[in-house]
Amino acid sequence: MVSSGKPKSSSPILADAGIGLRSAHHQALLREQPRVGWIEVHTENYFHDGGPHVRALERARETYPLSLHGVGLGLGSNDALDRTHLERVRRAVDRFAPALVSEHACWGSFEGEHFNDLLPLPYTDETVEHLSRRIAQVQDALGRQILVENLSCYLAFSSSRLTEWEFLAAVVERAGCGLLLDVNNAYVNACNVGLDPVAFINGLPRDAVQEIHLAGHTQRAIGEHVVLIDDHGSRVPEAVWNLYELAIGHFGPVPTLIEWDTNLPDLSVLLGEATRAQACLDVAHGLAA
């Protein structure tokens, strides 16, 4: 079957719970058509001209509002913006007409070598200017606003002069982008680099947060210390749920995604986590009414 072409319009994502859709769950999702508010996929997995994954997403988006979440643009890299990659993002956005498009506040390549990881940035005025300029270039190329996600970090730079929330607020103001708040990342950073997660949430520009991510993490011992690794490979921990409730108490109901990328369980497990997030959102909706 040939692509039916560009969808006529994107379905809006309401302040409901969604799931990250991975190819292992394509057929189960299409077969069972579960009740879930929306889906999100990694943009780079749908760069291709065809194939079963692209066809599955074209079918899924007929039922579910869609978000495209990029992991490979390296917005903060000092390397020139990868125009080929950006053009592929633009084609994916045109093809799938997502309601939301997001990327990360990170860098990923140096002198042409890509590390294929989300690498941390120092929180300085220089970085604010560089990252904002690059986000603006991407938004110009796509003709729309993007959301930028706070990163999980395993180190902090001594050169940082801003807090993480001051940094993100400055980027939002300068670039005109929105924010994707990853609550798990905030929790991980609290443990790994001493971030105050409550101050972080309270310090973000309230109107900029348009999406929330929830995920699990694991632990790794380094010497006598334990570092939390943001591996998206388990259920959302209770401490992260607690922080999430605090976040939606502050921001109000926000579209919330369950991310799960490694040790992928049955789709029903993701849906169970989404049901719990939806219950939190329903409470927030009630409070907001």
């Binding site: 690498l119 902090a156 001594s158």
Partner: peptide, 21 residues
């Protein structure tokens, strides 16, 4: 020299990124 150690040496922290990549 660029990393705030916080009790974990920089090499240990960087090793996470090296193994992730």
């Amino acid at each position: 020299c660029e990393v705030s150690s916080g009790g974990i040496d920089a090499a240990g922290r960087v090793s996470i990124y090296r193994s992730n990549s």
